[in-house]
């Protein structure tokens, strides 16, 4: 494996990691596999591209590239607002759909409902924006040689930095703050958490918000290096779940490491077997983990 394949795998893994952390938090704290998570990725990217366009009309200098990057401050501000909106979209979906099912104890129905929500959200994107691809930037960037045969564009380097900052922030939130402690407590034992005075529904809402916001960041960063399309999120869903399960449900470092492994495996597969095999990698990893180590790398036995 040459160094460039490692770098490509790292980029893929960084994008998957942001989505996988949302999946692992939702899965461990709400105890349900949300198959609509990929649509938060798409909605986040579309929200960002729309807001960036609107900001660009109102604030033309904001569209100038930031240093060597292909995007301007309008995309940065649009991205932050889009993360907020996607987090609220996730909370809204919970209030409308998943919370009533949770109250009835219909866990399996909630999983099926998430399939339905996924189809509806993707369909709505196509109705609103058509299936024509959108772009956060159409500037052509030249890759910079970084040594050891590795070349990355400035946007890709920024992507790695942003992902690193967001992952560290989530890990610090979970391990160093009161609300993070409450999230871990609810993930372990929601009934005891209630008795201990934790407002479990508030923790659920925060989990949805963080998951939605991270999925949005995932969509924006993916949109930065490829096209923004209605199916971009649903196509990412399998790698997100594979990374979360490989890392061990509930573990943020685990999801990040799982994503890195999936990303590297995908990049190696593209080089050795061809791009058509790329989507099979996550599936094979998922099956392998479920058979050999169902609790994942950092998970606990049930």
């Amino acid at each position: 494996m040459n160094a460039q394949v490692l770098a490509d795998g790292l980029i893929s893994g960084a994008i998957i990691a942001l989505g996988a952390v949302g999946v692992t938090l939702t899965y461990s704290i709400l105890r349900f596999a949300n198959f609509a998570h990929g649509e938060f990725v798409s909605w986040g990217a579309y929200a960002c591209v729309c807001l960036a366009g609107a900001l660009g009309v109102w604030w033309t200098p904001g569209m100038d590239g930031i240093g060597p990057l292909s995007i301007g401050w309008n995309v940065v501000f649009a991205g932050l607002i889009a993360m907020l909106l996607t987090g609220l979209l996730a909370i809204g979906l919970d209030l409308l759909l998943f919370r009533p099912l949770r109250k009835r104890g219909a866990a399996l129905t909630a999983v099926i409902a998430s399939f339905g929500a996924s189809l509806a959200l993707r369909g709505l994107i196509e109705v609103l924006f058509s299936s024509e691809p959108r772009y956060l930037s159409q500037d052509l960037q030249l890759a910079i040689p970084l040594g050891a045969g590795i070349k990355l564009t400035p946007d890709q380097i920024a992507l790695l930095g942003v992902t690193g900052v967001l992952l560290v922030a989530v890990q610090l939130l979970l391990t160093r703050t009161g609300i993070g402690r409450a999230m871990r407590a609810v993930g372990e034992n929601p009934a005891l958490a209630r008795v201990a005075g934790i407002d479990v529904e508030r923790v659920f809402r925060l989990t949805w918000f963080i998951g939605g916001a991270l999925a949005c960041a995932c969509g924006i960063l993916l949109g930065l290096i490829v096209q923004i399309r209605p199916a971009m999120g649903s196509e990412l869903l399998l790698p997100l779940f594979a990374a979360a399960i490989l890392g061990g449900i509930g573990s943020v470092p685990g999801a990040a490491l799982g994503a890195l492994i999936i990303g590297l495996a995908e990049a190696a597969t593209v080089q050795w077997l061809g791009a058509e095999w790329r989507s099979a990698v996550a599936f094979l990893v998922l099956i392998g983990v479920l058979l050999l180590r169902p609790m994942g790398l950092f998970g606990r036995p049930a």
């Binding site: 009161g178 402690r181 407590a185 034992n189 958490a193 606990r300």
Partner: peptide, 18 residues
């Protein structure tokens, strides 16, 4: 199941003190 087994003793107490 009256303690949060994966959290430290001190974190359990911090939850009580929130």
């Amino acid at each position: 199941e009256n303690v949060f087994a994966t959290l430290s003793v001190h974190d359990n107490l911090l939850i009580g003190a929130q």
